[in-house]
Amino acid sequence: MNSKSLKKKALIIAAALALPFGAAAQQYSAGSEVTVLQGFSPGGGSDALAQLVQPYLSKELGANFVNQYQPGATGAIAWTRLAKQTRADGRTISITNTPMLMTNYIMNPTITYSIDEITPLANVVTDPGVIVVRAESPYQTVEELFEAARANPETITIGNSGVGGDDYFSTIMVEKATGLKFIKVPFQGDGPSWAAALAGTIDASFNNLGITFPQIQAGNLRVLAVFTEDRLPEIPDVPTLREKGIDVVAGSSRGYSGPKGMSAEHVQQFIAAMDRVIANPDFLRDARERAFVIDYRSGDDYMTFLKNQEVTFKAIWEEVKDQAQ
């Protein structure tokens, strides 16, 4: 109720603001300044994306990017600002992380923004979900892990990066698809979660490939499964969950969005520039060096991607919220 009236207000304000600016600044030009709102601390994953993409994007778009960090409430403070308090003049955009962008307001009624109040511009990377165990773990395959969980329900401990994160939800998705019950142990981020698996404190960690890759390569961690559509060239021997008859595709994605009501010119210009960045071999090489898996979806594709996730996570949360709390 409140959010609707706010939304209306935001629309009216956006429309009113668009008018005077309309003729003057409908597109990016050399030297224009774009603020990138980041909902996380400098040095984190969002910042890593910004540092990778923005130097290239700045050349293509001609605009200068200024990062503004406003961490708090797993990004919700920055995204509320993007949705509710930002002029749709193209001069302020934000890095949007999924699934947190949606799970924030799905899980907490106090958070009132939604993806209907933003303009998705482009998703850039997706770090696919993986199940990792330590080298000494008795579980050699994903079947063995799940079999142990079937034999002794609610004894297998599975780490995740925190309630509301991608790993937390993918654990629930796997539970739903298999009928198994795990003990879900939330950690403060992906690092502590895989470290706990490495130490043997927990049986396995639902994590992300890019983050655990060095440990996998060194043989400290073993990947049992990856949550992608097809097998990945980095880990060709690791099966996908789909191969095992479990229809779970999940990961942690990051891209760019603007406020609702951004002009079509701005949006097209931004996407065109991003298209050129993604096609640039230098950029791809830099991305590979930083272990980023490019998952480019622009404009409406990105919106569909977000919408689909919103539906999935809403349904999951409706089902599990009473047990979780």
């Binding site: 797993t74 899980m107 907490n108 309630v163 939330p186 403060q188 979780a324």
Partner: peptide, 12 residues
Amino acid sequence: GMDPTTGTARFT
């Protein structure tokens, strides 16, 4: 703040 195990907001 948010309860780390349930995601519920406490005393906010």
